[in-house]
Amino acid sequence: MAAAIKTTKLTKSYKSRTAGRINVVDQLDLHVEEGEIFGFLGPNGAGKTTTIKMLLGIIYPTNGEGYVLGKEIGDMEVHKQIAYLPERPYYYEHMTGPEILKFYGSLFGISDKAKFDALLERVNLHRDTTKTISQYSKGMQQRIGLAQSLINDPRLLFLDEPTGGLDPIAHREIRDLILSFRDEGRTVFISSHELSEVELICDRVAIINRGVIERQGKLTELLKGGRIEITVDGVSEQFLRDMKISDANVRSLPNGFLLDVPEENDPNSVIDAVRNSKGSIISVVPRRKRLEDLFVETVTSKPRVTADGGAQ
């Protein structure tokens, strides 16, 4: 599949008075395929927005190279085929929804009123055409943002925290819209903290921490390594010793023992072994590895290294 985004050693550094030169984004190798929803995750200050701004050509990389839709970043031809929804977007408050679309449409030379009406209907703002942006709720502002981002029928959408600060209903509306973008064959690049949301909709993710990509890949592969909790009773001491040897955690419970078994170990063989040792199975609970676990595991405690080689 063709790459919608490809970067090689993309770096952005700034001079800091106290810490010398800091690589906000450090040798980023990113690969996003066309037609997928890609989650770009990281804690605050990890370099997510800086990366997006570089990919959009709003700020300039210090080193490395990047290609968006096959063209070098900053190419105006690419801008005709992409869209960007910033975090907590602001639109000119005196304008109404249709006026916002008219304005952003004019930047592409688009003045198709039927298209604007269809977009307003798609984001469920067609009944609020006389309200100005100052009268919009947060969710409505986010939806008009998505509508403006669809004006040019983009192949690639950059969404920075698209569900940040929204209530659960607005969350769901935005999520459904994003999923519909993939159904239409668009590529969606989402930067977000909402890990449960990302887990629900993304095909692949990358986790960036202090400017460096720590993990990148398919969610299904990254989230491998869950565990299965089997509560048993009446098993022998020997059985428990065998279990510990085979990479299972064994904990004593008031009503028996909890066997915490890695997902890759065949749980059926454990169940069979319990039965063979005349024990009984009380419960079997699969504990799937969550994106949150992976995220926390990835981003915790790594010292920041400056471009000069010093540590902070």
């Binding site: 960007y84 910033p86 977007p89 930047l107 040019n152």
Partner: peptide, 14 residues
């Protein structure tokens, strides 16, 4: 400050 510039400069506007 209001980030309106980003939505504009991400369009084909120099």
């Amino acid at each position: 400050e209001r980030r309106t510039i980003y939505t504009i400069l991400s369009k084909p506007v120099t």
